[in-house]
């Protein structure tokens, strides 16, 4: 086995044993790390690998959360069945946004801004149409049985998040070794050259956004089942979009483990600053301290480490 494979196996073993050894609140934090890495990876596949930066990825997250919740609460679906439906709906919204934006020839920051606009439109719609119950939000009836996608013991939701994260890592790994992935990277690096070399740039971009949207929507359902409540600003709020982008950029956009490393790092900062604020009274009023640290970190990374923290580990020539 190569060193990298060995490291992965060891990491996985540690992740499997971890929740058996720590108190519940730490299990919960671990769950959040993997969950955020998962939705971060959904961003990374489009934004990192294919270079289609989005500022509004939450549009897929919210679509997933609302689709499964509505199917469940209003139409009585089992959430396990509603999950693939929500995933498909996220894929559809990704497809639709891609077709509309890329047909119109939007690239780069224009595309990023249009995704932000879509997310805002969806948030406002969720606030006003009757079937989402508007600003009141939607409550999923607590009934903690696995058949209901609800778990009494937090260890199960932890393992589920770990599984999602694993799946997303495998998808990213596959991208680094497949023609589809090579084409996405080509599109990111130079769209005109990609076109000249026979790549149907429009079709590939639509494909990757469909995939990314589907993944992110699966995360939305997961989130709704964990917290049993969603409202428009939770489901479509800009902070989730920023979080997905942030973990990828901090960890290393366009890398397999970037979102996971970024998610670990940000969770670490979160906990460290919370602890710091509790012991240093002067910092009590500087809230949220973690955001300030994120901001500084992002500036440093954009300026000094264009490949994120992964850039520190990468062997061979660095990518500028």
């Amino acid at each position: 086995m190569s060193r990298a494979a060995l490291l992965c196996a060891a990491g996985l073993a540690a992740a499997l044993v971890y929740p058996l050894l720590v108190p519940n609140y730490l299990v919960n934090i671990g769950m959040l790390v993997f969950f955020t890495a998962f939705i971060g990876q959904s961003w990374n596949i489009a934004g990192g690998f294919a270079g289609q930066t989005s500022f509004g990825h939450v549009v897929f997250f919210g679509t997933g959360a609302y689709t499964s919740t509505i199917l469940q609460v209003t139409y009585g679906w089992n959430p396990w069945l509603a999950w693939p439906a929500a995933t498909a709906m996220g894929g559809f919204v990704g497809w639709m946004i891609a077709v509309l934006s890329f047909r119109a020839g939007l690239r780069g920051s224009y595309f990023a801004l249009i995704t932000l606009a879509f997310a805002e439109v969806f948030r406002i719609l969720a606030n006003s149409v009757p079937f989402t119950k508007g600003g009141l939000g939607m409550l999923i009836k607590a009934d903690q049985r696995p058949i209901n996608f609800q778990f009494k013991d937090p260890i199960w939701i932890y393992y589920l998040a770990l599984l999602l994260c694993l799946v997303s890592v495998v998808i990213a790994w596959h991208l680094t070794r497949s023609r589809f992935g090579a084409r996405l990277v080509a599109i990111r690096e130079n769209e005109d050259a990609a076109r000249a070399l026979g790549i149907d740039v429009f079709a590939e971009k639509v494909k990757v956004l469909t995939l990314s949207g589907a993944m992110c929507a699966a995360g939305g359902t997961f989130y709704a089942q964990k917290y049993l409540y969603i409202d428009p600003s939770i489901a479509f709020g800009v902070d989730k979009s920023v979080e997905m982008l942030l973990v990828s950029m901090v960890g290393g956009a366009g890398t397999i483990f970037g979102p996971l490393i970024g998610s670990f790092t940000l969770m670490g900062i979160n906990e460290a600053t919370r602890w710091l604020a509790s012991v240093v009274p002067a910092l009590k009023n500087v809230q949220p301290l973690s955001l300030i640290v994120y901001g500084i970190m992002l500036i440093l990374i954009v300026a000094r480490l264009p490949n994120g923290l992964m850039g520190l580990f990468r062997r061979g020539p660095a990518r500028a």
Partner: peptide, 29 residues
């Protein structure tokens, strides 16, 4: 039929091998 660019358009962040592979993937997956 395929063109090249007067103002060269390399895929800057990836290796020469990977650059050429993008072309080669046109014929094989």
């Amino acid at each position: 039929m395929v063109r090249t660019f007067q103002i060269t358009q390399p895929f800057a962040g990836i290796s020469v091998r990977e650059n050429i592979m993008v072309g080669a993937y046109f014929r094989t997956a």
